[in-house]
Design a protein around this nucleic acid. Structure first.
Length: 273
DNA sequence: CAACCGCCCTGGGAGC
DNA sequence: TGCTCCCAGGGCGGTT
């Protein structure tokens, strides 16, 4: 599933290709995504307008025109491909934005957990789904200090805490597991029972993991967006995620799997405390 | 407010 | 081979 590095990689690619382009027409499959899509509203905001800004907030991509904004989320299984054809060529193509040139933006999402939604606000970050989001891990200086401070009243497990988008965005199941391994912290440990120094190590681990994945995604960005390649976490070696029973890359102990609020977590019982 | 649960959805893999 | 069942998971809305 697309995590922050994949969304960042996609956004950078789109920026290079769509900024300043005028949207001519929009196709919509008619299937509800996370919520129903208001095609008339989307056309009103985008058609006949040129894309004046592209940005990312958490795992959301925001396209702006002089008329308003379009919020895009890739959900679990979403992809954005730029194609020459304005026809839906792949199964589960739900939205196509056609430009005046021979570039069409294809939004493809088999599981339809994603979102495409037009809205009008003065500041694009004021959308209700965006305005209560936590910090950007790559922009926040002293991420560890911030996390420690937010954790003081939280009894919940650190893994669950890290995945709370009201605290910090862009840390999904894979990167939460990988960051905790790198920081040597057990995923079940209560958030408030971790010392500041360990949070500082965790903050650096999160930033390292995300940056490395963006870099890996960037090296294969062309392939990733054309849908043939594998960017982000596909391109890097995972230490714990999905590795139950396999041996730890640091100490050779078998990796364990546990369920936390319905989600799987993987960790090394010897390296993580 | 904190914590958790159920739900949205389809593809892929396991088991029979 | 084909069927059924379960799992993957972000994020939201509702409940305790």
């Amino acid at each position: 599933m697309p995590e922050l590095p994949e969304v960042e990689t996609t956004m950078r690619f789109l920026k290079g290709r769509l900024l300043g382009q005028e949207i001519a027409d929009i196709y919509y499959s008619g299937h509800s995504l996370r919520r129903p899509l208001d095609l008339a509203q989307l056309k009103k905001i985008l058609c006949g307008q040129s894309i004046s800004k592209l940005q990312r907030r958490g795992k959301y991509i925001i396209l702006s025109t002089s008329q308003g904004h379009a919020l895009i989320h890739l959900g679990m299984s979403g992809r954005i491909l730029l194609k020459q054809s304005a026809q839906a060529e792949e199964a589960h193509t739900h939205v196509i934005l056609t430009t005046r040139k021979d570039t069409s933006f294809h939004y493809i999402d088999p599981r339809r957990f994603g979102l495409v939604e037009a809205y009008i606000t003065r500041d694009p970050l004021h959308h209700p789904l965006l305005r209560n989001l936590g910090v950007e891990p790559l922009s926040q200086a002293n991420l560890g200090d911030y996390l420690w401070q937010k954790a003081q009243k939280r009894n919940t497990a650190i893994k669950t805490f890290l995945m709370d988008a009201k605290i910090v965005v862009g840390v999904g199941n894979i990167y939460a597991a990988e960051s905790l391994f790198r920081a040597g912290i057990h995923p079940l440990r209560p958030a408030r029972k971790i010392a500041l120094r360990r949070y500082q190590r965790l903050g650096e681990a999160i930033r390292f993991i995300l940056k490395r994945s963006i870099k890996a995604g960037g090296t294969s960005i062309k392939d990733f967006v054309s849908g043939e390649g594998r960017g982000g976490y596909y391109a890097i070696k995972l230490d714990v995620y999905g590795r139950e029973g396999e041996s730890c890359h640091k100490c050779n102990a078998p990796i364990k799997q546990v369920k936390q609020t319905g989600r799987s977590s993987w960790y090394c019982p010897r390296c993580q405390r």
